[in-house]
């Protein structure tokens, strides 16, 4: 984006002063800070990490090494509940954003707590699934399929974990300082992070779980 502001010295005189307006490019709106754009670019780089892990799973996803297959291991009803938890946490975060736009602190905090609880429920179910798999001898060391599965789904789970840590931090920041511009910015960044994780989860449940149980 070219924001060319050529400013002539006012001493240039009558005819030149009249021409000045030609060189001032008036833009409709220019963002004052680049935080959100920068955070978006971070999310895009995170997207590349997940793309690499998806590619590894795509290559190794059927390398069972004589071990259990996805069709034998994956519990689709559990995955459906997990997906619902993450989807519900997305919409409750949206409600928190709406309340913060109306300037209502208590409701914002309330919806953020609900979002965090849905996030914790998601993590709990995922850890339960991992524990169940490892207990039945289907740990990450069993086959290339399980190594890539645990790496991809585990990386997503780690992101959700750090999202919850961030959310709790933000609860304290909001509780202490209220809806100041800095906290609104943090709220917006976490919103992008949280919804981005939901987008990655769409890829996970489609590509890993649903396609994994297909014969």
């Amino acid at each position: 984006m070219s924001d060319t502001h050529i400013l002539h010295a006012p001493a240039a005189g009558g005819p030149a002063a009249a021409d000045d307006s030609r060189f001032i490019v008036r833009e409709p709106h220019h963002p004052e800070n680049g935080t959100l754009l920068g955070f978006w670019i971070y999310l895009m780089s995170d997207c590349l990490i997940f793309a690499c892990l998806f590619a590894v799973y795509g290559v190794q996803g059927r390398a069972y090494a004589g071990g259990p297959t996805g069709a034998q291991l994956f519990d689709l009803p559990l995955v459906a509940v997990n997906t619902a938890m993450l989807l519900l946490s997305s919409i409750t975060y949206g409600f928190a954003m709406l309340e913060s736009q109306r300037g209502r602190l208590r409701q914002t905090l309330g919806w953020l707590v609900v979002t965090g609880l849905f996030g914790l429920a998601f993590l709990g179910l995922e850890l339960h699934e991992f524990h169940h798999l490892i207990e039945h001898g289907a740990g990450p060391g069993r086959s290339a399929f399980l190594s890539s599965f645990f790496t991809l789904v585990g990386t997503h789970g780690l992101h959700v974990t750090f999202g919850i840590v961030w959310l709790v931090t933000l609860l304290f920041q909001l509780g202490r300082h209220g809806l100041i511009p800095e906290n609104r910015r943090r709220l917006m960044c976490l919103s992008m992070f949280w919804h981005f994780l939901d987008v990655v989860w769409i890829g996970v449940f489609t590509f890993v779980y649903l396609m994994g149980v297909l014969p």
Partner: peptide, 15 residues
Amino acid sequence: AAEGGHAPSTFRGYM
């Protein structure tokens, strides 16, 4: 400025 030029979200959009 706090929203960095993002359009404000609406209930309708989220639903």
